[in-house]
């Protein structure tokens, strides 16, 4: 039996600027319909790896395939994935509704009342229906992130990337956002890739992850975050999941 093609395949990736190598020999695959996380400490290159995955940066070496298609072909037409940037990245001169209509009217033939209906439905989905005519500057940071998710969903992608979705949010808003991510994965079957270091979010939504380490310049662990927390013998990974200092982990014999 032929195994199913992974949704994302990264092979022997090297990332860096000029002669500076941030990470190398990065290999991993993301299965369809899973919620996958890229974890690691500050400055280890999580967001940089995400920027490579979505095609904003070119790798120094290696290959990234989404749906079996390599990087050069990814922006040939309408993108097949959605991205939520850290700040929501909404266009501040457009209302939420107009922000959502932008990809729809650019990449599809849907116009008029149908387009408005779809935009309103997505805003309702993230709980922002009544704020359709507000400008991004008139709503809170958590709402901007939810609107960013609604915009990312407009072209019905089967893959979503989230860059630090819970960063800067209060615990209740962060949990609501996590639950929205769970809904998108469970009910819509969307493959989700999250860059984060928020442990509560990781344990709530993530089933598979890689852990990046700045010192190792690459992946140091791969698997279910709960399993890594309970069983990993790598001091950095143990420290990361238990919020203890690496020195403490070494003293504990991990």
């Amino acid at each position: 039996m032929i195994p199913p093609t992974p949704h994302i395949a990264v092979a022997d990736l090297r990332v860096g600027w000029g002669s500076r190598v941030l990470m190398e020999h990065v290999n991993f695959e993301v299965e369809r319909g899973t919620t996958f996380a890229i974890l690691g400490g500050s400055g280890c290159g999580k967001s940089t790896l995400l920027r490579h995955l979505i095609g904003l940066e070119r790798p120094q070496a290696g290959r990234i395939e989404i749906d079996g298609v390599g990087e050069p072909h990814r922006y040939a037409g309408a993108p097949h994935f959605g991205v939520l940037f850290q700040s929501g990245a909404l266009f501040s001169s457009l209302t939420l509704e107009e922000n959502l209509l932008l990809p729809l009217t650019t990449w599809t033939s849907v116009r008029g009342a149908t387009a408005l209906e779809l935009a309103r439905a997505k805003l309702d989905l993230v709980g922002l229906g009544p704020f359709a005519e507000h400008l991004p500057g008139e709503i809170s940071g958590g709402m901007r992130k939810r609107a960013g998710i609604a915009r990312a969903l407009m072209l019905e992608p089967n893959l979503l990337f989230f860059d630090e979705p819970s960063a800067g949010l209060d615990p209740i808003t962060a949990v609501e956002l996590d639950q929205l991510i769970v809904t998108l994965s469970r009910d819509f079957g969307i493959t989700i890739v999250i860059v984060t270091h928020e442990l509560p979010s990781i344990f709530l939504v993530v089933k598979d992850c890689i852990v990046l380490d700045k010192a190792a310049k690459g992946i140091v662990a791969r698997g279910d975050p709960r399993t890594l927390r309970d069983q990993s013998t790598i001091p950095f990974v143990h420290s990361f999941f238990t919020r203890s200092s690496p020195a403490h982990s070494k003293r504990q014999g991990v």
Binding site: A121, D124, L125, G127, G129, P130, E133, H134, D187, F188
Partner: peptide, 21 residues
């Protein structure tokens, strides 16, 4: 059914209408 239920539920969860522009 699951997808339609998600959208019907989200509409039912609507908050009170905001002040119009």
């Amino acid at each position: 059914e699951r997808l339609i239920a998600v959208y019907r539920r989200s509409r039912a969860d609507r908050m009170p209408a905001a002040t119009p522009r």
